[in-house]
């Protein structure tokens, strides 16, 4: 039972932006992907959720090949993709944003339990919330979809580190409920701390794949991996 990429290649316009990537996301654990700007991290997540197609290899979710499925079917199969940028629906209230995935009261309560501070903002237009609060809405909304695997793309983007610090334990907590989390982050140290497995991607290639601990303990290893 894993989310598995076998030898995946993704091409975009000029040529491959992801080349022969193999990785496995395990339920209940956080797998962190780091790498310089333009390395192909977003493209990797987009190929998983179906935003873009793959040009080689295969993607399996719990043994089922999903690489030809529509985005909607992948979502129903248990994938949730939090895209880069703040993917709120601006004309919806906080409550409406959550209701898109939280169909029952229990789901709604579960989502709000992650971020109790959202409770008093339920009827506000989401666009009026702070950046951090908007990311809370997005994360809570993804959680309420009860995904098996959660893909998170640079949730920290544009947030103060203290605000992102609020999100990190929640991501860890979501993983503990049995969700496999694939976490793409700029703040490598924070993201590696909650991860078991980790990858460094440079120019579309995997330049390091191994335990997150090793990268944390040895800054030289991380530096070397970044250089490709």
């Amino acid at each position: 039972m894993t989310l598995k990429l076998n030898d995946v290649t993704v091409s975009r316009g000029v040529g491959p932006v992801i080349s022969n990537v193999t990785l496995e996301v395990t339920p209940g654990e956080v797998t962190t992907v780091v790498g310089p700007n333009g390395a192909g991290k977003t493209s990797l997540l987009e190929s998983l959720s179906g935003v873009i197609g793959i040009s080689g290899g295969s993607i399996e979710l719990d043994g089922v090949d999903i690489s030809k499925m529509s985005r909607r079917r992948r979502s129903h199969a248990g994938l949730a993709h939090v895209q880069q940028g703040r993917m709120i629906f601006p004309s919806l209230t906080v409550k409406e944003n959550l209701q898109l995935t939280a169909s029952t009261k229990a789901d709604m309560d579960g989502a709000l339990a992650l971020f109790p501070e959202l409770e008093k903002r339920l009827d506000s237009a989401t666009v009026l919330l702070s950046g951090g609060e908007q990311q809370m809405v997005v994360l809570a909304r993804a959680f309420a979809a009860k995904p098996k695997y959660l893909l998170l793309d640079e949730m920290s983007l544009g947030l103060a580190p203290v605000v992102f610090l609020r999100l990190i334990p929640i991501i860890e907590q979501i993983a503990k409920t049995g969700v496999g989390v694939l976490l793409v982050e700029q703040f490598a140290h924070l993201a590696l701390k909650i991860a078991s497995d980790s990858l460094v991607i440079t120019s579309g290639h995997v330049s390091y794949h191994g335990p997150a601990d090793a990268l944390l303990k040895d800054p030289d290893l991380l530096k070397k991996a970044y250089l490709g």
Binding site: S49, V51, R71, R72, A80, H81, Q83, F89, T101, A145
Partner: peptide, 9 residues
């Protein structure tokens, strides 16, 4: 796109 990724038809 974000709506599609939430499984909305």
């Amino acid at each position: 796109m974000a709506a599609e990724l939430l499984g909305i038809n």
